[in-house]
Simulated assay, not measured.
Amino acid sequence: MTRSSTLLTRSTLLLALAAPFAVQAQAVDSPWLVRVRAVNLDSANKDSTGLGLSINDKVLPEIDFSYFVTPQFAVELILTYPQKQKIRSNGVEIGTLKHLPPTLTAQYHFTDFGAFKPYVGAGVNYTRFSNVNFNPAVAAALQPSVDKNSWGFALQAGMDYEVSKNLYVNFDVKKVQIRTDVSSFGTKVGEFRVDPWLIGLGIGRRF
Score class of each variant (00 low, 15 high):
Phe134Ser: 01
Gln83Lys: 04
Val132Ala: 08
Leu7Trp: 08
Leu53His: 01
Ile178Met: 14
Phe129Gln: 00
Gly204Ser: 04
Phe21Pro: 01
Lys148Met: 11
Thr2Lys: 11
Pro196Lys: 00
Asp112Phe: 05
Asp112Gly: 06
Pro118His: 06
Gly186Arg: 05
Pro102Cys: 02
Val36Ser: 14
Leu53Ile: 11
Val173Thr: 10
Ala38Lys: 09
Ala115Phe: 03
Phe192Cys: 00
Tyr67Trp: 14
Val169Tyr: 08
Phe21Met: 13
Thr127Val: 10
Asn90Leu: 09
Trp197Ile: 01
Ala137Tyr: 08
Ser30Leu: 06
Gln143Lys: 12
Asn56Phe: 09
Ala16Cys: 08
Val176Met: 07
Ile87Arg: 06
Ala122Leu: 12
Tyr67Glu: 08
Pro136Tyr: 04
Phe110Pro: 01
Asp64Phe: 01
Asn170His: 12
Pro82Gly: 06
Leu167Phe: 15
Asn131Arg: 11
Leu60Ala: 14
Lys117Asp: 10
Leu155Glu: 06
Leu41Gln: 10
Ser183Arg: 08
Val120Gln: 02
Val189Ile: 15
Leu17Ala: 13
Leu15Pro: 01
Ala19Asn: 10
Ser130Asn: 13
Leu97Arg: 00
Gly152Leu: 02
Phe129Asn: 00
Ser130Leu: 13
Val173Pro: 05
Ala115Asp: 12
Asp42Ile: 14
Pro136Gly: 03
Leu15His: 11
Glu191Cys: 01
Ile94Tyr: 00
Thr6Asp: 10
Phe65Ser: 05
Val39Phe: 02
Leu53Ser: 02
Pro102Ile: 00
Lys188Leu: 00
Ser30Val: 08
Met1Thr: 12
Val28Gly: 05
Lys175Asn: 11
Val173Trp: 14
Leu77Tyr: 13
Pro61Ala: 07
Val75Gly: 11
Leu53Phe: 05
Ala27Phe: 05
Leu7Cys: 06
Ala140His: 05
Leu104Ser: 04
Val34Cys: 09
Arg179Tyr: 03
Ala154Leu: 06
Ser145Asn: 13
Leu51Tyr: 11
Glu76Thr: 15
Leu100Glu: 02
Ala137Pro: 03
Ala25Ile: 05
Phe171Ala: 15
